[in-house]
Simulated assay, not measured.
Amino acid sequence: MTTGSVSATRTNDGLSTSGPVKEDRRRSWWDRHGRTTLVWGLRAGVLLLFLVLWQLAGGLVANPMFVSNPIAVGEQLIDWIQDGTLGTHTWITLQEVVLGYVIGALAGALAGFVLASIRLVYDVFEPFMMALYSIPKVALAPLFIVWFGIGLDMKVILAAVSVFFLVFLNTAAGVRDVDRGLIDAVRLMGGSNKDVAFKVVLPASMSGLLTGLKVSIPYALIGAVIGELVASNRGLGYLINDAAAQFNTAGVFAAVVVLTALAMILNALVGVLSSRANRWKPLDSE
């Protein structure tokens, strides 16, 4: 007997199923686990291949003084961990990045949502925002030093400015792309401006906001490290400057590795936030 796409056969013990059902189960397991395992395996393979080629290049092809090698970088990281250097300077940079990211993201999201919700105001301010966004942030570092000194505040503000414009522009784009039909439908049902803002515009603009939050993470790091490179005696940027001044290429790469790890961790955290914030979206039809 066959019903739909499931083939069934009568046995002494009852009804057993085979064929498409087992195939669907295997496919479901692969979709959930197999592809993820494959992706992570390939990532590990690419990383291992890169480290091997780097190690070989540092000993055979190029001068180790200029390219170092993974073993020397690992030894430098271990030395810094043991004497407390890495923990101290990483903590300083992490504070600057997190504070700058939070301040810039909150200000950018609020400004983007408010200004883009009022078309006339946004049309007036858009060219000024684009002009300010186009200014290289490294050019602002000397000015911020004059205004705020060389302490933690200057790096936090530089990171916040770097984040602000990306979050602002992406949030504004999300607000302006809201389906006008949804807004008209809410108004026809007697919805107020508050209902339109919080029940239509805000949820629909979340994708733009989350995009801005994700792409701005590296810029928060860039802003903080630029401030440290220009004028600082603490932080990972200072470690890079100090190592470069001593021709310690392994130290420069070690600090860059730590910065890369910080960026990956922050990206993962924003990814978790994005997956939770997108739960309201309807599932794609199969």
Rank of each mutant, 00 (worst) to 15 (best):
S117V: 06
V73F: 15
H89M: 12
A105E: 00
V102S: 09
S68A: 15
I92T: 13
D83I: 02
D79E: 15
E96V: 03
A111M: 15
A107H: 01
F113I: 09
G100N: 05
S68P: 11
M65I: 15
Q76A: 08
L106M: 13
L77D: 10
N63D: 13
L99A: 07
I71C: 03
T88Q: 11
P64N: 11
G104P: 02
G112E: 08
V98E: 06
F66D: 10
W91Y: 12
L99Y: 07
T85F: 10
I78Y: 13
L86M: 10
I103S: 05
L99I: 06
L99G: 00
I92R: 01
I118M: 11
I103M: 02
L86T: 09
I81K: 11
L106P: 10
Q76P: 01
D83C: 11
T90N: 08
L94A: 07
G84R: 09
L106C: 15
F66R: 10
A105Q: 04
V73R: 00
P64H: 13
S117A: 13
P70G: 11
G100P: 07
G74H: 00
E96N: 03
A116N: 06
G74D: 08
V67M: 09
I71E: 03
G108S: 11
T85C: 03
M65W: 14
T85P: 03
I78P: 00
V98G: 04
L115Y: 09
N69D: 15
H89Y: 15
P70W: 05
V102C: 12
A107G: 14
F113Y: 08
S117Y: 07
G100E: 00
A107T: 08
L115H: 08
A109E: 04
V73C: 09
F113Q: 05
G112Q: 08
F66A: 08
E96C: 06
V102E: 14
E96H: 07
V67P: 01
L110F: 12
E75I: 01
P70N: 13
D83P: 08
L77E: 13
G74N: 01
N69F: 08
Q76T: 14
T88W: 01
